[in-house]
């Protein structure tokens, strides 16, 4: 390691802040990080001004950990700015990697979201129908706020990304792997996703047998959970279609995987693959005895396919958003 300390930046865009907490979750290793690197930018913890970043030389930052999706003009601007200033750009967490929960906003658009948030919500009283505008005139002059976009994008749909750390938030072990590799200068080829190739099932503690289910159940509908694969018990678990590395934490808590790890390396579309798997095993026993209405009834038990199969990945899916009709 060279004498000079590495320069890290952490930035958050459209995200919940969980990724920031995850950084702290590496516990005492944070001290090693502090020893090895200076943190130049960390809005959640430190004050900063845009002009401080703008003043940096290009490539001044060694590694930028960028969490959050891109859903307004400020986030986009900062993404571009940080790209310019950073040697290595890491998409950190599901929102940056695949769109994350904010990506589900792609089921609506700016107009629809504003209507819900500023008009329709029961707790709202907004008789004048005021909604945020990028620019508004007040007597002191013009006020500007960032422009809100119709469509949420992933980080790599906005700027070039070098590495990806998926997860909501990324598991501590993967953060450690990444940070250690950076500190040691042992980074994998650019474009790599810093997570195992195999799906969550590889790490899941539940015993698996052959998959054939007769109905779909929500978690609360299961009276007594058996000690076996949740999917085999009729609970939709995205584990088989989701990249692992999380040590199947949710499954340890008896909750199904909801897919934050994103698609596996050979999968073009995480939700599409899960739909294929689920529909194949659903009603498999005596499948020839089902009439068409019975098949419909079976399929209808899957409510909200987008929310189920694209909870963290709509902006990066083959079909990235809902088509809005005039």
């Amino acid at each position: 390691m060279s004498e000079e300390k590495l320069k890290f930046a952490f930035y958050w865009a459209a995200s919940c802040g969980g990724c920031e907490i995850a950084v702290l979750d590496i516990d005492e290793v944070i001290l090693d990080v502090a020893a090895a690197a200076d943190i130049l930018l960390w809005p959640v913890a430190m004050d900063f001004k845009y002009k401080d970043v703008e003043a940096m030389d290009d490539g001044h930052i060694d590694v930028c950990f960028f969490n959050g999706a891109i859903r307004n003009s400020e986030q986009e601007e900062l993404a571009h700015l940080l790209r310019k200033k950073s040697k290595v750009m890491v998409a950190f967490g599901s929102c940056a990697v695949t769109g994350g929960i904010p990506g589900l906003a792609n089921l609506s658009d700016k107009k629809g979201i504003f209507e819900t948030v500023y008009h329709d919500n029961a707790s709202i009283e907004n008789p004048e129908g005021i909604v945020p505008e990028p620019s508004s005139q007040v007597k002191e002059g013009e006020l500007t706020i960032p422009e809100f976009y119709d469509t949420v994008r992933t980080l790599d749909q906005t700027i070039e990304v070098d590495y990806y750390l998926p997860g909501c938030p990324p598991p501590t072990s993967l953060i450690l792997t990444a940070v250690t590799a950076i500190i040691k200068g042992e980074l994998p080829p650019k474009g790599s996703i810093i997570a195992p190739n195999k799906s969550v099932c590889d790490e899941c503690r539940f015993e698996k047998s052959d998959k054939r289910i007769t109905e779909i159940k929500r978690v609360y509908e299961v009276e007594k959970l058996e000690d076996k694969c949740l999917l085999e018990q009729g609970i939709i678990c995205l584990g088989p279609a989701t990249r692992g590395g999380c040590d199947a934490q949710c499954l340890k808590a008896n909750m199904p995987c909801t897919g934050c790890g994103g698609p596996t390396p050979n999968s073009l579309d995480q939700g599409g693959k899960m739909i294929s798997a689920l529909a194949s095993i659903l009603g498999l026993d005596d499948e020839e005895k089902y009439n068409d209405e019975q098949v419909d009834a079976l399929i209808d038990k899957v409510v909200d396919p987008v929310g189920t199969f694209y909870k963290y990945g709509l902006p990066s899916a083959l079909i990235k958003r809902k088509v809005m009709k005039e």
Partner: peptide, 15 residues
């Protein structure tokens, strides 16, 4: 089967 990618989830077996 691409063994490096298979997690042994057993979805395929019953099909």
């Amino acid at each position: 089967v691409d063994v490096d990618m298979c997690s042994g989830c057993r979805t395929c077996i019953s099909l």
